[in-house]
């Protein structure tokens, strides 16, 4: 579904990603882990062109995002993204946050968009909050709304950029539960996370990045039990 080939990203003279190649299959859940500053988030943001790669290819469903004259907007509609700091639209109610893009971008009718939005809110356990504004929600609730907002566009792929890093500890579980549920339903997911528990339990594959290099990838059980590289061993010793 996603194919990444020799991806490089530089900010000025600072090389953040170096020659990354991998692919993610349909229905696969991939966790991207690594120390801070390792380029995890930049890598994720290159997958929907929030960062433009300096060179290399990102191919999604056969379409090269980095090719000339690609309709990035169109491709983004099929890719949901969840941010560390939620980025809900603060001047819109929860329901409006969910219905705005489907109505505006896909031309869905208001009644259809609202019907689907209510179903999604039910799914993330926030049905009673549809009229609330984001400022009245807790961090965990905001993130669940943000996940629902991304799902409202019916994406084939979901990107999560440290979705639980800005949350109070007691709220991490409610967000992870929603993500686990999503993974079970067969959604293709790429998750940048510091939650090793999630990576181990839910992910089909773990990518370990360090200093912008894809150092190691593998099945979570093998990776966490016996990492092949020195750097991954070091990292796991520190975080586990």
């Amino acid at each position: 579904m996603i194919k990444v080939e020799h991806l490089y990203k530089k900010f000025g003279s600072n090389e953040v990603l170096t020659d990354i190649s991998t692919d993610i299959k349909k229905g696969e859940v991939v966790s991207i882990i690594g120390p801070s500053g390792s380029g995890k988030s930049t890598f994720l943001r290159c997958l929907n062109m929030l960062e433009i790669p300096t060179s290399g290819k990102v191919i999604i469903n056969g379409q090269d995002l980095t090719g000339p004259k690609k309709d990035v907007q169109k491709i983004r509609q099929g890719i949901g993204m969840v941010f560390q700091h939620f980025h809900l639209f603060p001047h819109l109610t929860v329901l409006e946050n969910l219905t705005y893009a489907p109505m505006k971008v896909k031309g869905e009718s208001k009644s259809l968009a609202e019907e689907k939005a209510r179903a999604l809110l039910l799914r993330v356990g926030l049905a009673e909050k549809e009229k609330a504004y984001p400022s009245s929600l807790s961090g965990g609730q905001k993130q669940r709304v943000a996940i629902a907002r991304a799902l409202a566009m019916e994406p084939e792929l979901m990107l999560f950029d440290e979705p639980t890093s800005a949350l109070d500890p007691e709220m991490v579980k409610e967000v992870l539960d929603v993500m686990k549920d999503l993974a079970k339903s067969g959604m293709t997911m790429a998750v940048v996370t510091h939650e090793m528990g999630f990576a181990r339990e839910v992910a089909d594959r773990v990518l370990f990045l360090d200093h912008g290099i894809l150092v190691e990838e593998g099945k979570p059980l093998e990776f966490f039990a016996s990492p092949k590289t020195e750097r991954a061993r070091d990292f796991l010793e520190k975080v586990l």
């Binding site: 169109k74 809900l88 971008v105």
Partner: peptide
């Protein structure tokens, strides 16, 4: 306005004009 607002709108595939009119300018 927080840069994340623009990124969230872009990630949803919202066109520039609509993003400015409905998301950024009201804030």
């Amino acid at each position: 306005v927080d840069k994340g607002q623009m990124e969230a709108a872009q990630a949803l595939g919202i066109p520039y004009r609509a993003m400015m009119k409905d998301i950024i300018l009201p804030q």
